[in-house]
Amino acid sequence: SFNTVDEWLEAIKMGQYKESFANAGFTSFDVVSQMMMEDILRVGVTLAGHQKKILNSIQVMRAQMN
């Protein structure tokens, strides 16, 4: 498990989005775990492969939080 959203993004090789997530207010796992595709688009993730990777990881995160 990760301590910060930045660490999580690095771990899934999506570190290039750290600033975008932070600027959009997605700075805690409570918020990130609620993200939908529209949120991912809003933070500027436009590549389908990256969207899928982030969404898949969020689903895993949700499962671990319950």
Score class of each variant (00 low, 15 high):
S20Y: 07
L55Q: 05
S28Y: 04
Q64P: 05
G44P: 05
R62G: 07
E38A: 13
G15W: 06
A63S: 13
G15Q: 07
D39E: 05
Q64T: 10
Q16V: 11
F2M: 07
M37C: 09
Q51T: 06
K13P: 01
K13C: 13
M36W: 07
G25Y: 04
M65I: 11
D6G: 13
V43D: 01
A48V: 12
D39H: 05
A11W: 13
A24K: 08
H50M: 04
L9D: 00
W8C: 02
T46F: 11
A63G: 11
F21K: 00
G25R: 04
I58E: 00
Q59H: 10
K18Q: 06
A48G: 08
F2Y: 13
Q59F: 12
S33L: 15
N23M: 14
N66F: 03
L9Y: 02
E7G: 08
Y17L: 02
E7F: 05
L47E: 14
K13A: 14
M35L: 11
L9P: 00
T27W: 07
I54T: 00
D6E: 11
D6M: 08
N56S: 13
M65Q: 09
T4V: 05
M36D: 15
M61S: 03
K53A: 15
Q16D: 06
N23Q: 13
E7D: 13
W8V: 01
I12C: 04
T4E: 08
E19G: 09
E38K: 11
I54C: 02
A48D: 12
Q64A: 13
F21T: 01
V45P: 01
L9V: 02
E19C: 09
A24W: 10
L55Y: 15
S20K: 13
I12T: 04
D6W: 12
W8G: 00
V32T: 03
A63T: 11
G25L: 04
M36V: 15
H50V: 02
Y17D: 01
Q34I: 09
K13L: 11
L9N: 01
N66C: 12
S33N: 07
G15Y: 07
N66Q: 13
Q59C: 12
I12W: 03
R62C: 06
L55F: 15
M14A: 03
Q51G: 05
M65D: 06
I58G: 00
Q51R: 10
E10W: 05
V5C: 03
A48M: 10
S20H: 13
Q59T: 09
E38F: 07
A24V: 04
A22V: 08
K53Y: 15
G49Y: 13
S20V: 08
G49V: 14
N3E: 13
G49S: 15
V45L: 02
V45S: 01
N23C: 07
F29W: 07
A22T: 08
E19R: 12
N56K: 12
S28Q: 06
V43S: 05
K53P: 03
A22F: 14
Q59M: 15
K18W: 08
I58P: 00
S33K: 10
S28E: 06
E10D: 13
A11C: 10
F2C: 09
N23K: 14
T46L: 12
I54G: 00
T46G: 05
L41W: 09
A63K: 11
L55N: 04
N66A: 14
W8Q: 00
A63D: 15
V31P: 04
D39S: 04
R62I: 09
S57M: 10
M36S: 15
G44R: 03
S1M: 15
V31M: 12
V5P: 04
A22N: 08
Y17K: 01
Q64C: 13
W8L: 02
E38V: 12
T4I: 05
K53T: 15
V32Y: 02
I54K: 01
L55M: 14
E19T: 14
G15D: 09
Q59K: 15
M36L: 12
M65Y: 05
A48K: 13
I58F: 02
M61Y: 05
M65H: 07
Q64Y: 08
Q64M: 12
L41C: 08
Q64S: 12
V60E: 15
S33G: 06
L55W: 15
L47H: 14
R42W: 07
Q51W: 05
V43H: 01
M14C: 07
M61K: 03
D39K: 03
G49H: 15
L47D: 15
E19S: 13
G15I: 05
W8K: 00
F29A: 03
V31R: 15
M14V: 04
L41T: 08
M14W: 01
T27C: 07
D30R: 15
F21A: 00
I58R: 01
S33P: 04
Q16A: 09
T4Y: 06
S1L: 13
A24P: 01
I58M: 03
A22Y: 13
V31K: 15
F26N: 02
V5A: 02
A22P: 01
M61R: 03
Q59N: 12
R42N: 10
G49N: 12
S57P: 00
E19Y: 09
V60P: 04
M36P: 03
F21V: 01
L41D: 05
S1G: 12
I12R: 02
N66D: 15
S57V: 04
Q51Y: 05
I54L: 13
F26S: 02
S20F: 07
M65V: 07
L55R: 04
F26M: 07
G49I: 14
E19H: 13
V45N: 01
V45Y: 02
T27H: 08
E10Y: 07
F21N: 00
K52G: 06
E38R: 11
T4R: 07
V32S: 01
Q51F: 05
F26H: 03
M61I: 12
G44A: 03
